[in-house]
């Protein structure tokens, strides 16, 4: 990924340089210049209200605001976790419904996955609305991004009498699938194990 490709979207908006001199507020914008990573980088994407931020908290131990109202996560948050002995950076993104953004917050998420070379994109979906949310999964697969699907909120789906066949879904889509109930931390170990496979396999790629 060359930086000249992304400077349009990655740069912070015009900001009075006086504020920067005073050291106010430019911290967040600096975060967006995260091109070219030496270690594994993973983005969490998905529509609003599917538990992305909660999962991000569980994965990184960094608390960002968990919200079930569209628009309360507006910045990309990042946090780290050591998986399989390697440092892995996770990005939490504002909600997006499809690859074509409508609002500015959706653009933030799309810019991240379109402009960064990510090692893995974790698409988080709500088990209760699987069919509707697979739309974005299919778009991500189409884009040939490395995708892992997390089917979250299995607990709530269960209350409605819905069960999802994890293996069957993985076969159908041709990507790894993990079913979870992030609020109860169910499935977290399984997810980390899957991500760990991933971290190792990127290392293997380097050594080959």
């Amino acid at each position: 990924m060359d930086c000249h490709d992304c400077h349009k979207s990655c740069q912070p908006k015009p900001q009075n340089s006086v504020w920067k001199l005073l050291g106010f507020g430019s911290k967040k914008s600096a975060k967006s210049n995260f091109s070219r990573h030496s270690h594994t980088t993973i983005a969490l994407v998905g529509s609003p209200n599917v538990g992305k931020s909660l999962l991000f908290n569980l994965l990184t131990g960094t608390y960002v605001t968990v919200s079930n109202y569209p628009g309360t996560t507006v910045e990309v948050a990042q946090g780290n976790r050591i998986i399989a002995g390697e440092k892995v950076t996770f990005f939490d993104t504002p909600g997006m419904y499809s690859l074509i953004p409508i609002t500015e917050e959706e653009k933030v998420a799309r810019d991240l996955i379109m402009n960064e070379t990510l090692d893995l994109v974790i698409h988080v979906v709500d088990a209760k609305h699987l069919g509707r949310m697979l739309n974005l999964t299919l778009q991500l697969i189409e884009a040939e991004l490395p995708v892992l699907l997390v089917v979250n909120m299995m607990d709530e789906a269960k209350k409605l009498g819905i069960w999802i066949d994890e293996n069957q879904l993985a076969n159908k889509l041709g990507i790894p699938v993990v079913t979870m109930a992030a609020a109860q931390k169910v499935g977290l170990k399984k997810l980390i194990a899957k991500v760990a496979d991933y971290v190792q396999s990127t290392l293997l790629c380097v050594t080959y």
């Binding site: 419904y97 499809s98 074509i100 409508i102 609305h129 069919g131 509707r132 949310m133 739309n135």
Partner: peptide, 11 residues
């Protein structure tokens, strides 16, 4: 077109 896209995206 934006409205159509939004409706589609929302399922």
């Amino acid at each position: 077109e934006k409205i159509v896209k939004k409706l589609l995206a929302m399922g």
